[in-house]
Nucleic acid binder design. Structure first.
Lengths: 206, 206
DNA sequence: AACGAGTAAGACCGGTCTGTCTCTACCTCG
DNA sequence: CGAGGTAGAGACAGACCGGTCTTACTCGTT
């Protein structure tokens, strides 16, 4: 179940005392990986491009990440922190005052996100569909998607809605569907989903 | 807009008069391509595997399809016929008597489809996300997704619903979101989407 | 001053990719 | 019969893949 966030080489405690001169190689690799994986997926990005863009030797790369897939796992964890938590959930909580407002604000945040010219869709969906649900990276993506549902479920409980888990699963259908529609070019997808989301809230009151 | 269904080598009128002895090579290639592309996407399937599985020489393959991408375009067209039209839309129309029932029956058909052990998700979404919306194959996928919306819009018009295009776009969000949820393993995703779909119909009456 | 750890640079390996080309066999039509 | 088109089989090219390994350099610590 929670096999997603586990043994990925933590970029924090890199090198206990022997902190090398330049910016840590691990940090540079992770920054480049985030940029490339989030916009182009996994298979389209090769190890050679990753090391060239991060100015790192191949041996250094493989000292910190035993395989390309392990770097992808680290990217997914980073994506959960920077995108799911910081960019979406925290921002939506900030924009609303009541839990219900905060829930609906998710689709306002989506609206701003859809308009970015480097809109990259949801990496968890992308990688799940790219690798398939049986692949370890697909499994990890499923775990992180479940974490997103967990945030929604927490807000539903704060709002006192009935059957919070069912609510979160239906809500997530609206989130994912609107992201695909935005990828197709529908810039009003967030508004359409938000309208249906309001009806969903209404039917979960009581 | 409608650049999707165009110059793909039609498997019907292959060889006007010089019909070769065995089953047409084009038909075998297309059958194998449908099986492999629908379940594993584009990049995971190589030309060598395609020709081996269809018992065809490489030169024969490239005589009929100038590139791998052109075969993918032919697959997308076939997918539109066999899956969108025959398996989903026609089946949903068969299951319901009124246009409203036929619309809601889409999610009953989805329910049966989700339960298949070789459930392969939506090839148009898969390839759109795999190649990106800027790639020709991603563009073609967007076109075929628009055709799906066209079927929904037609049913909405038959049902006399208000703003049929907006209705179809919202409806499509539910279809796509439930497919992703099914890929994650939620076998009730069709029911959740169907409930929200009923509310959507309700709000488009008048 | 000497050492060891970590680094950049890049050659290298075996394998895969799309796409081209050659060769031979067959079948049909004139 | 013979020509032309289509077929299967497969070698080959050129690029790229993930991953291993060697070399030389730069540090901080002792």
């Amino acid at each position: 179940m929670s096999s997603a966030a586990e043994s990925v080489p933590s970029p924090v405690q890199t090198q206990a005392g022997a902190s090398a001169g330049h910016a840590d190689a691990v940090d540079r690799i992770l920054a480049v990986a985030y940029e490339l994986f989030s916009h182009r997926g996994v298979r389209d990005v090769g190890v050679n491009e990753l090391i060239e863009r991060s100015g790192v030797a191949k041996a250094t790369f493989y000292r910190h990440f035993p395989s390309k897939d392990s770097l992808v796992l680290a990217f997914l964890e980073q994506r959960d922190r920077q995108w799911t938590v910081d960019a979406i959930v925290s921002e939506a909580r900030r924009r609303g005052t009541t839990p219900t407002e905060q829930l609906l604000a998710i689709f306002d945040v989506f609206g701003d996100w859809f308009l970015r010219e480097d809109f990259e869709a949801c990496s968890f969906i992308n990688i799940l569909l790219e690798m398939g649900p049986a692949h370890p990276l697909g499994q990890a993506s499923i775990d992180y998607l479940a974490r997103i549902r967990g945030h929604v479920q927490a807000l539903a409980e704060e709002a006192g809605l009935a059957r919070p888990e069912d609510f979160a699963r239906s809500w997530h259908i609206l989130m994912k569907g609107s992201i695909i529609s935005a990828t197709e070019g529908d810039m009003q997808a967030n508004k359409r989903a938000q309208q249906m989301a309001a009806w969903l809230i209404e039917h979960h009151r009581s």
